[in-house]
């Protein structure tokens, strides 16, 4: 690393400070998840760290917590619908705007990306107001619509990025060889951008499953959503069952990210 350079004290101090801060920052990033994982195996009744002893009791408790199961099922169903809708609408829109340099394409791009920066809580309230104005009662349907608005940007962004990597000559060659646009799309474009679509769909799914601000306004009383259930449980009492549930969610996330890294090269996708 340092070949051809004099290792002066000054350079050394720089490298030392930067490396130390980086390692501290990485520890701060990873530590909370590890702490929760450890606490979830406590044998005690509190979230004391380190735990007085270890057991699986809270995972057994979680197995019987039907309220959490019900909420998890609802969150899963809404996330699947919102992701599906986001992929259909988002991929089509990405195809339209990715290679176009016109003003309208760029405006559409900004419009589709804006839910990422606007406060989701304000959007949730706005959507609730509109739905009540037109007489559409809150239901799983309004949840899916609201989630799709805040999740579709991830699909659009990742698909546009995948399309930008696509060699235009491939499409030209395919056309020259007599393939129709539809045939070229299914046989050339889709296979090449598929990892990008999957990565976008994955992030959309995770953000829908985790969404609180939109769900708070757009769910009906019968539709309990997992993150809201967890949030309300945490506001009331610090239940160790939530630690066990958090343990399950952390492990599931690590496993899904590992699979996605294999399938789509997720880490490269998010840094290029």
């Amino acid at each position: 690393m340092m070949s051809g350079r004099k290792r002066t004290l000054e350079a050394f101090s720089f490298e030392l400070v930067m490396t130390l801060v980086a390692i501290i920052a990485l520890i701060i990033i990873i530590a909370p998840s590890l702490v929760v994982l450890i606490v979830s195996f406590t044998s005690g009744f509190s979230l004391r760290f380190p735990p007085p002893g270890y057991s699986m009791r809270w995972y057994v408790e979680l197995w019987n917590a039907w309220q959490l199961h019900f909420a998890a099922k609802n969150s899963l169903i809404v996330a699947l619908w919102a992701t599906g809708l986001s992929v259909v609408l988002g991929v089509a829109a990405a195809l339209a705007i990715s290679r176009s340099r016109t003003l309208s394409a760029r405006l559409l791009d900004s419009l589709f990306m804006s839910p990422l920066v606007l406060p989701a809580l304000a959007f949730g309230l706005a959507a609730l107001m509109l739905f009540s104005l037109v007489g559409l009662p809150v239901s799983p349907l309004t949840l899916v619509i609201g989630h799709t608005v805040v999740c579709v940007p991830y699909v659009v962004r990742n698909t546009v990025a995948a399309l930008a990597q696509l060699e235009p000559t491939l499409l030209e060659s395919s056309a020259v060889l007599g393939a129709s646009r539809l045939y070229t799309f299914y046989r050339i474009v889709l296979p090449l951008i598929r990892p990008g679509i999957i990565a976008g769909a994955f992030i959309a799914f995770m953000s829908s499953f985790d969404n609180v601000p939109v769900s708070l306004f757009l769910r009906d009383a019968a539709t309990d959503m997992l993150p809201i259930r967890m949030w309300q449980d945490l506001e009331g009492k610090l239940d160790v069952t939530i630690a066990a549930l958090s343990g399950v969610l952390i492990i599931a996330t690590v496993a899904l990210v590992a699979v996605m890294e294999r399938v789509t090269g997720l880490s490269r996708r998010l840094t290029s």
Binding site: L26, I29, I30, A31, P32, S33, V35, V36, V39, S46, L47, R48, F49, I203, M206, F209, D210, V212, P227, M230, W231, L234, L238, I242, A243, S246, L249, I250, T253, V254, L256, V257, E261, L266, S267, L270, T271
Partner: peptide
């Protein structure tokens, strides 16, 4: 990258809960 990415994809409630455990009176 994976260390940096993990919190982004982990549930916000879970991440926040972790900080309650860390910062609490009996916390780490």
């Amino acid at each position: 990258i994976l260390i940096v990415l993990l919190p982004l994809l982990t549930s916000v409630v879970v991440r926040t809960f972790a900080w309650i455990v860390i910062l609490g009176r009996q916390g780490i």
